Computed example of a mutant assay.
Amino acid sequence: MKVGKAIKGLMERTRLTGEQMAMDLYTSSSNISAMKHSKRNMQRDLAKRSLEVYEDATYNMEITHEFSNGYTAPVISGDAIDRSNHLAVMVAARKEIDEVEEVMQLERFLRNPNLATNQERESAMKVYKESKEAADILYNLCARLSEAYDFSPREMNNQVLKKWKATEVVK
């Protein structure tokens, strides 16, 4: 997968050199350079290793988004939200949460999904869409907060997972 933008961003944010990245990932400097300039795809094994080595939330989002064929949250990068301002991302997240609450009309979900009317099915798709938008912006918020306040997203994720296991949300 083409990951030039992700590599360039990681190098800028962490002052990482191509030579250091090559050593970290057990590859050549020329391979890193080719990937950085989008002349070569990153292989899955290098992507996996890089996610283990570099604890950078934005890089993690970019790599996982690329390798999941867009299934995971993209890094917001447009002009509508100033991602560098964590408060702007918080405001956008609050707006998305409010939009989910507006469309989540619980009475439309009482019926067995196999017997749902077209209107109930459309309501489910609307809730999905709004929930996905909220989840993606919240994922960006988590990444931005970990960067702005310099804490480990990996450690925070581990704490959440530990809590969920303790409350039997996950096994």
Results as ranks from 00 to 15, higher is better:
27 T>V: 01
70 G>W: 03
18 G>T: 15
45 D>M: 02
15 R>V: 07
75 V>K: 12
35 M>Y: 07
55 E>N: 11
9 G>L: 09
9 G>T: 06
72 T>S: 05
67 F>R: 04
29 S>Q: 14
70 G>D: 02
69 N>E: 10
45 D>A: 03
58 T>V: 14
59 Y>N: 04
10 L>C: 02
40 R>K: 06
58 T>N: 12
7 I>R: 02
5 K>N: 14
70 G>F: 02
45 D>L: 04
14 T>D: 07
19 E>W: 06
56 D>A: 06
10 L>W: 00
31 N>T: 13
63 I>E: 01
66 E>Q: 15
62 E>H: 01
34 A>P: 00
52 E>T: 09
40 R>P: 01
35 M>C: 08
14 T>Y: 05
63 I>N: 05
5 K>M: 14
72 T>Q: 02
66 E>K: 15
25 L>T: 12
10 L>F: 00
39 K>M: 15
44 R>D: 10
64 T>S: 03
8 K>A: 10
48 K>Q: 11
37 H>M: 07
12 E>G: 13
48 K>R: 10
31 N>K: 13
56 D>G: 06
20 Q>P: 05
13 R>V: 02
8 K>E: 10
42 M>I: 09
33 S>L: 14
38 S>T: 12
22 A>I: 04
57 A>N: 07
37 H>G: 08
11 M>H: 04
61 M>R: 01
16 L>F: 02
20 Q>R: 14
75 V>Y: 11
50 S>M: 13
20 Q>H: 10
48 K>C: 09
27 T>R: 01
50 S>C: 05
57 A>V: 11
25 L>S: 10
21 M>E: 00
20 Q>Y: 04
48 K>S: 09
51 L>Q: 12
25 L>G: 08
18 G>R: 15
5 K>E: 13
65 H>R: 08
73 A>S: 09
38 S>F: 15
76 I>C: 00
8 K>L: 12
8 K>C: 11
11 M>W: 05
15 R>C: 09
65 H>Q: 08
36 K>P: 03
26 Y>K: 06
54 Y>H: 08
11 M>E: 06
12 E>H: 15
27 T>L: 00
62 E>Q: 13
24 D>N: 13
52 E>N: 08
69 N>C: 11
